[in-house]
Amino acid sequence: MQLKTFKTIKERWEDIWIFGLDISNTAIVGMMKLQLENIVVIGIATSGLVSIGYLLLIDSLWISIFPAIIIFLINAIAITAFYQYDQTARSRIKARQAIIEITFETIHNGPLQNLDRVLRLLKGEDLPIHKLLPELEKELQHLNQELRGIYEFWQQETFTQEPSLYLGNRTVINLQDPLHEILYQVYSHTLERDFPCFRTLKLKIRTFEPIDESNLTLENKRGLCRFLEEALCNVGKHATGVTCLQVTLSLSGGCYTLSIVDDGLGVKSSRESRGTQQFKNLARQIKGKFRRVPLSPQGTICELSWH
């Protein structure tokens, strides 16, 4: 019986073969992201290498495929592990950043507003000392309560893990409730706050229509609540002489709009505040538009719209 002889490629070509497979394997594995995808690609690539080796073996050509398979498997394990680590690290950073943003919004719309009132008392109002001190004491006590309330809220939030929004004075609303209901709660709570311009209000019009929330996440709803809260705070602080306030959540022509309109003097400033930056970012998240423009002869409209 005659034994079949096999030919082998030259050593340098075998090195080039293995090196080329290593490069291509690394590129293939680098594009894999999902666990199931990894398994499928590894199975296909390994089967392909074995098939190539078998077909060449039929033609009496021996080529080394096992080093290539081993290198591919090592690359797959290493790159997949690195990808999973990278994704976990990115998720933690994103979650930490979200907590920072939520905490800032809570402080900005609560304690910082009270601190602003303290500064206005010290700078703006020409009160005798015996009247100024009681006002300052009241505001500082309120500030102290707000800070303690935020601390207690975050302790409870960490324990319960429920999606909620802190409004101050230990008022917490559930973000899983319908949007028109939680916006009404934000509206009612904010108008009870002691801002100077609220004292001149004579007419308050509000309409919160039920809407389709399927395209909104809980964080989107949180952002809309904070938008309404800050817009109302701005009216209370800056809309001098305001007598009419109109707040609406409505649907028109397939477009949802949350609008806050007042007839006060307002503040004209070219500087983009932190709140404006947040609302523009929220508009991008919900694929909508944000605008704050003066009205003629006086007044301001502040609104978010989205489809």
Rank of each mutant, 00 (worst) to 15 (best):
F6Y: 15
K280C: 08
P294K: 10
G253A: 04
Q278H: 11
G266Q: 13
L179H: 05
G149T: 00
A68H: 04
F208C: 14
T106W: 03
I74V: 15
Y166H: 09
Q87H: 05
R12Q: 09
F82D: 06
K131E: 14
T200M: 01
F82H: 07
R271Q: 13
L34I: 02
I69T: 07
N38V: 08
L258A: 02
L34M: 04
L132N: 05
L251E: 12
E125I: 08
E11Q: 13
I107H: 03
V242Y: 11
K33R: 14
S64W: 00
M32R: 06
T207N: 11
D15E: 09
K4D: 03
N281D: 14
R206T: 01
F104I: 00
C225V: 00
L201M: 10
A239Y: 02
I205Y: 06
A89N: 05
F66L: 14
P178V: 01
Y85W: 05
L132C: 10
E152M: 13
P294R: 12
I23Q: 03
I79Y: 00
I58F: 03
Y151A: 15
L143A: 11
P196Q: 08
L258P: 05
R291N: 13
L201P: 12
K4R: 12
T240P: 00
Y187P: 09
F104Q: 11
C244K: 12
L147V: 11
Q97W: 05
A27V: 15
V247H: 07
E105C: 01
F198W: 02
G30M: 07
E303I: 03
K33E: 07
Q35M: 07
G241S: 12
G223S: 10
E272G: 05
G149C: 05
A98K: 13
V29K: 00
R206N: 07
S51T: 12
R222F: 15
R284M: 13
I150Y: 00
E229I: 14
I63H: 01
L136P: 15
R193Y: 05
L147G: 00
A76G: 15
L191M: 03
Q246G: 03
G236Y: 05
V29A: 10
I65P: 01
G236E: 06
S214C: 01
P297F: 12
I102K: 08
I23K: 08
T300D: 07
A95K: 14
W306D: 04
T171N: 12
R92W: 09
R199Q: 14
F72R: 00
Q97H: 12
T8E: 15
E213Y: 06
